[in-house]
């Protein structure tokens, strides 16, 4: 244990996380094996297995976000900048989410120049992308497109789908700042915590005068929702 004799809440939280995630990990990996066997035998509950896996993944993302947000509230959101190949981060998220999305027949399109490098916090940005990708499972019809380009002084990572798009209360276009304040809106059923997290991560990336931000729009190249993360 740490040197402080008394257990702080963050110790309790961290150790509970550790146990919970161990269990989630076991559930996840066991399910993965079951799905593997299921695919060989072509059994009919395969789809339900994927649903279970999706929920576990969601739980896990929620836990990570919870801890990150808790720490951010206590302190600043810590960021560990380094120079990364953008494609690596996008590919990792695709590898992570492809089995699930493919199980529903969703096609993933990845478009990113191989020599695009940028300075950002890998695990935080991956967390944002992962979260949005995971959501598309519920909202898109049958396509997801993830792409990255350099637009002037910003790196832009976009995730687009061909679903019904964002509801009006979650749209964030141009300079609106709806997610800066109270992120939780219980009457709409969606807590928007995922977007609040995105907002924190975007804002924690700044380079001199330029600050990171994100946009949620409808339309885009696939006609559904379009999430764009701007990193200076």
């Amino acid at each position: 244990m740490e040197s402080q004799d008394e257990l702080t809440f963050s110790d309790v939280l961290a150790s509970t996380m550790h146990d919970t995630k161990n269990s989630l990990g076991m559930l996840y990996n066991t399910l993965e094996e079951m799905i593997g066997r299921c695919q060989e035998k072509r059994c009919d509950v395969q789809h339900e297995f994927f649903l279970l896996q999706y929920e576990i993944k969601r739980l896990n993302n929620i836990l990570i976000r919870l801890l990150t947000l808790y720490k951010a509230k206590k302190n600043q959101l810590l960021i560990n900048l380094d120079l990364h190949r953008v494609g690596d981060c996008l590919e990792e998220s695709v590898v992570q989410n492809a089995p699930l999305l493919n199980s529903r027949g969703i096609e993933i399109d990845l478009d990113c120049p191989g020599d695009l490098f940028w300075v950002f916090d890998y695990s935080l940005v991956l967390g944002v992308i992962d979260n949005i990708m995971n959501n598309t499972y519920r909202y898109t019809r049958d396509k997801v497109r993830i792409s990255a380009v350099r637009e002037e002084a910003f790196l832009v990572i976009r995730i687009e789908d061909n679903g019904p798009g964002y509801p009006p209360q979650l749209l964030r276009q141009g300079n609106s700042t709806i997610h800066d304040g109270n992120p939780v809106s219980f009457d709409t059923g969606s807590t928007g915590l995922g977007l609040y997290f995105s907002c924190l991560v975007a804002k924690s990336h700044n380079n001199g005068e330029r600050k990171g931000y994100f946009l949620t729009e409808n339309g885009g190249s696939l006609g559904g929702g379009r999430f764009s993360l701007y990193i200076p």
Binding site: A14, M17, H18, K21, N22, L24, G25, M26, Y28, N29, E32, N60, L63, I64, L67, T68, K71, L78, I79, N80, V95, Q96, A98, P99, Y122, S123, L124, G127
Partner: peptide
Amino acid sequence: ADNSMDKFMGAMEYQPDDYLIKPFTRE
């Protein structure tokens, strides 16, 4: 268990090559 470890940076020569966050898939 979570993604906060890679924010700690001690002496350069005692850093792991990479972090892996639980749970992870085969892929």
